[in-house]
């Protein structure tokens, strides 16, 4: 039994053919006397053979040209899909406009009102975290909470984050 455990460890270690000579001989000796490990080793080798012979898929035509075109363009789609990226990029803009709004609100009443509604919209953008569906991209939130949040349509807090009543 102990011999089999060692043998399997050596098989795993030598899975890229790089087992050192002493261990390779020890493994060979064990395999000679153990049918179960021989079978295990054969299985490892068979699977490696089949995978190695996997026919490569042809790269779709025009691939490198498309990469080039994407490099000419701006941010990639994955970056755009990551709401944290665009949210945080907007923070300084939102802050500046909010400040401007506060300053303007000291002026005429009508101008102040317009600025206040603008600031609400901007703060909302900044807080994309508050949108119920945003939890789907938030890796810090567990599935149960994410599901509840999406199903109920309301952002809920994690236990450690805020007191929940």
């Amino acid at each position: 039994m102990k011999g089999c455990d060692d043998a399997r460890t050596w098989m795993a270690r030598g899975g890229d053919g790089s087992l050192d000579e002493a261990l390779r001989l020890a493994l060979a000796a064990h395999l000679k006397s153990c049918a179960a490990c021989r079978d295990e080793a054969a299985g490892q080798g068979d699977v490696a053979s089949v995978l190695h012979a996997r026919p490569a898929a042809a790269v779709p035509p025009g691939f490198s040209a498309r990469v080039s075109a994407r490099l000419d363009r701006g941010a990639s789609w994955i970056e755009l899909a990551e709401w944290r990226t665009w949210t945080w990029r907007l923070v300084p803009v939102a802050a500046a406009l909010f400040l401007a709004a506060v300053l303007w609100s000291g002026g005429s009443a009508s101008r102040g009102q317009a600025a206040a509604s603008m600031s609400v919209a901007l703060v909302d953008t900044d807080g994309a975290r508050a949108a119920p569906e945003a939890v789907l991209w938030d890796s810090s939130i567990d599935e149960g909470l994410a599901l509840r949040t999406v199903l109920t349509g309301a952002r809920q807090t994690t236990p450690g984050e805020q007191r929940h009543d």
Partner: peptide, 8 residues
């Protein structure tokens, strides 16, 4: 690649 079966 010979992998583990090489030794048997």
């Amino acid at each position: 690649r010979p992998a583990v079966a090489a030794g048997d």
